[in-house]
């Protein structure tokens, strides 16, 4: 079993133009910083990116947007990015906005071999356009399809050489469902340890879902909105 790769550059090998990527994280919390920076350097283009958010202008997916490497964004909330808004309004960027829970479940379903499922979110709204509606127990639901990706790229707190992952606090978010839904899943971790070191009871993502793993370097872990209270 050889899952460990040297760095982000080696991890993203095989990611080519026009591929579909899933990228974990919520806002800037738990995003795979090293891989995003490596993708920026690689000049790969025409990407479809599935991610809850689109980063900010100078960090996270915002860096890929700025270099026009993303063709289509599939997300639930893209608020904090002026370049994103500009490309959206000018028609340069294709955008599909999806209710957050539906987005998470579509990734989970994709990894779990469930092709489609019904949810109530979005019924009666523009999200329902073109979707099958079905009633169960007197309530209306929309048929939503699973999502998968050529590559899923996630960030974890700890990982081992078998690809088992543990996330920390709210940096788990979309990383766990997305880790299951990539044809190839890449994990960048803050602490890479030998197999057998992590407590098997505490694993969030079992290693079977992960094909490549590496020790992240120089993580900035930027905070979007620092809010504090008085002592």
């Amino acid at each position: 079993m050889k899952k460990v790769v040297k760095d982000a550059l080696e991890a993203i090998r095989g990611i080519g133009d026009n591929m579909t990527l899933m990228l974990g994280g919520f806002g800037l919390s738990g995003i795979p910083e090293n891989c995003i920076n490596a993708l920026v350097e690689s000049n790969v283009t025409g990407l479809t990116c599935i991610s809850n958010n689109a980063g900010v202008d100078d960090f996270g997916l915002g860096l890929l947007l700025k270099k026009r490497q993303i063709k289509k964004m599939i997300a639930s909330y893209v608020g904090e990015n002026a370049e994103f808004e500009r490309q959206l309004l000018s028609g340069e960027l294709e955008v599909e906005l999806i209710p957050q829970g539906t987005l998470a479940e579509r990734c989970r379903a994709g990894g779990a071999g469930i092709p489609a499922f019904y949810v109530p979110a979005g019924y009666g709204t523009e999200v329902a356009d073109g979707k099958e509606v079905r009633e169960f127990n007197g309530k209306k639901y929309l048929l939503e399809h699973a999502l998968t990706a050529d590559f899923a790229i996630v960030k974890a707190w700890k990982g081992d050489t078998h690809g088992n992952l543990i996330y920390r606090h709210t940096a788990n978010n979309f990383n766990q469902p997305m880790a299951t839904a990539g044809k190839i899943t890449i994990a960048e971790v803050e602490e890479l340890v030998p197999a057998g070191t992590l407590d098997p009871n505490q694993i969030h993502t079992p290693g079977v879902f992960v094909q490549r793993i590496f020790q992240a370097q120089n993580l900035e872990k930027r905070i979007e909105f620092i809010t504090t209270r008085e002592a």
Partner: peptide, 20 residues
């Protein structure tokens, strides 16, 4: 509650992306 100054954690935010 919000953290004290200096105790913010990038891995601990709310849905509004504020440190908590």
């Amino acid at each position: 509650p919000y953290p004290l100054k200096g105790e913010e954690d990038a891995d601990l935010i709310n849905a509004g992306k504020q440190t908590i």
